[in-house]
């Protein structure tokens, strides 16, 4: 147990070893999932007939316009939404409800405002009965990892938006989840802060080797972060493209100027545009 708690930030150490340590966990399988809300005439299908296989340790971005059902799909992995048909499993276990094996980072600031940074991050381990000592040291480790050691005893309201989201990531990771689920986590941040956050998220992911499902509507963000970008279209939501992002890692923001990056970005862009046009024509038909 303690062995797991400790192996954190070793900046000199290179990526592969750390990445492998839990590469056997976090295999997400989505099979023929459809998600329908409401009944009768108000029925609305958010996700239709979607299947996905995400191997352990992969960083997958789900890209699509608002209202395309990408958050709903993510919520089905989180366990907030039960698929109407089909199944979602992690390492073969069917997901029935939210649980600490899946860390969740939300778009809105979701820290407990009455708890300090440290209490927020220690919340998971405390709730799971790890004991105060372990919870505190785990919290400390993760707060250091996201670079907020100085702010451990501050309340969320005293932090900037970017700092709050870093605490959110630390809190989600403190339970040592198998999968990190992120629902447009940087959507509310200004673009400079967002770039910094993307970079530090990649660093954390490299150290952790955890499976990440990252929902975004920002093409640059998806291409910069992901091993794979799944493009979703609306009405009803389905995955229309599965694009492998074979850009080298570690990636720095400069990569956005590379031809390969541009090519992949254009590919995503074209897919989305084709879909949007189709949807637009349907609406105006």
């Amino acid at each position: 147990m303690l062995g797991l708690v400790k192996p954190m930030p070793q900046p000199t150490e290179e990526t592969p070893r750390a990445r492998n340590h839990r590469a056997s966990e976090g295999h997400v399988e989505i099979q023929n999932v459809s998600i329908t809300f409401g009944k009768g005439s108000k029925q609305h299908t958010a996700v239709t007939e979607t299947s996905l296989d995400i191997p352990p340790g992969e960083f997958v971005c789900i890209l699509g316009p608002s209202g395309c059902g990408k958050s709903t799909l993510l919520n089905s992995v989180a366990g907030y939404v039960t698929p109407t048909t089909g199944s979602v499993t992690i390492d073969g276990e069917e997901i029935k409800s939210p649980g600490p094996d899946r860390g969740m980072v939300f778009q809105q600031y979701s820290l407990f405002p009455w708890k300090t940074v440290k209490e927020n991050v220690a919340f998971g381990p405390n709730i799971l009965g790890r004991g105060k000592t372990v919870a505190d040291s785990t919290a400390q480790t993760f707060i250091e990892m996201v670079g907020l050691a100085k702010f451990a005893n501050r309340y969320p309201a005293e932090l900037s938006g970017g700092m709050q989201q870093r605490v959110g990531i630390a809190r989600a990771l403190a339970n040592y989840p198998r999968v990190l689920l992120m629902d447009e986590p940087f959507g509310a941040l200004d673009s400079q802060t967002r770039l910094m956050m993307q970079e530090s998220l990649l660093k954390i992911w490299t150290e952790f080797g955890i499976t990440v499902l990252f929902v975004t509507h920002d093409i640059d963000e998806a291409v910069f972060l992901g091993d794979r970008v799944l493009v979703m279209s609306a009405g009803p939501g389905k995955i229309i493209a599965d694009i492998k992002i074979d850009l080298p890692r570690p990636r720095s923001p400069d990569i956005a100027l590379d031809d390969d990056f541009m090519r992949l970005k254009k590919l995503c862009h074209d897919k989305i545009r084709a879909e949007s046009l189709k949807a637009f024509e349907q609406q105006n038909a």
């Binding site: 939210p98 649980g99 600490p100 820290l111 709730i127 799971l128 809190r171 989600a172 339970n175």
Partner: peptide
């Protein structure tokens, strides 16, 4: 929702 996903 955050609390639920943290195991509460």
């Amino acid at each position: 929702r955050a609390a639920r996903s943290l195991g509460a």
